[in-house]
């Protein structure tokens, strides 16, 4: 994004807002969901953060400033929401054990959200049915029989797809044993 665009943004050009939404909507939604397990509320909060970004656009200096602003605003809104709904106990579902000053936390949260996005993108490179089977079994914990019913396919197909996914991921992460192990260990033990 070149400098002129940014000046346009301050002047009221909506294209930059559109760009920021494309870049940050998914990770903000994920981030908000870490605080509040309610998709509708999260969507509302994220929309509001972008609205606030628009209001304060004149103060933005660059794209990473914008990203920081969005995460910070979203976090505050989430905490406010929790404050209002006192009845529900405050549980932060984020990375545990890292207790630092707020600003640095936000930075790590941003990195983490981006990281998860990259992992997801990796899964999306799989052929559709393989990705579907991987998600259902590994991420959502469905059994082979359940997957057969859901996808209207045979157990053989499910096993075949799983082994294809394995070999694909081995290829992708093969040079790093730690990640391969992390990524696949539960999968290996549960399903093979």
């Amino acid at each position: 994004m070149d400098y002129n665009y940014f000046e346009d943004f301050k002047a009221g050009n909506q294209r930059v807002l559109e760009f920021c939404i494309q870049q940050n909507r998914s990770s903000l939604l994920f981030f908000a969901y870490k605080f509040i397990r309610d998709e509708t509320v999260c969507e509302e909060i994220v929309a509001d953060s972008f609205f606030k970004l628009w209001q304060h656009r004149a103060r933005m200096t660059d794209l990473s400033h914008i990203q920081y602003f969005l995460f910070k605003t979203t976090k505050n809104a989430c905490l406010n929401h929790i404050e209002k709904e006192k009845s529900s106990p405050f549980v932060y579902h984020g990375l545990e054990g890292i207790d630092q000053q707020d600003d640095r936390n936000i930075q790590f949260d941003m990195i983490y959200a981006e990281f998860i996005q990259l992992l997801c993108a990796e899964l999306d490179k799989l052929p559709t049915q393989q990705a579907q089977i991987f998600r259902l079994s590994y991420l959502e914990g469905y059994s082979t029989e359940e997957i057969c019913t859901l996808l209207n396919t045979t157990a053989n197909n499910v096993f075949y797809a799983k082994s294809k996914v394995l070999s694909h991921l081995r290829q992708r992460f093969g040079r790093n044993d730690m990640l391969l192990a992390l990524f696949l260990a539960p999968y290996l033990f549960q399903h093979l």
Binding site: L29, Q100, F115, I116, L119, C120, L123, L139
Partner: peptide
């Protein structure tokens, strides 16, 4: 702290859940 974060990320077993969340939301 950067290194602490990095190491925790590598050891964090919450990925599975977070991947599922990400996929559900997006």
């Amino acid at each position: 702290q950067h290194r602490v974060f990095f190491e925790q990320l590598a050891e964090n077993s919450g990925w599975k859940q977070d991947l599922a969340i990400w996929h559900r939301l997006n």
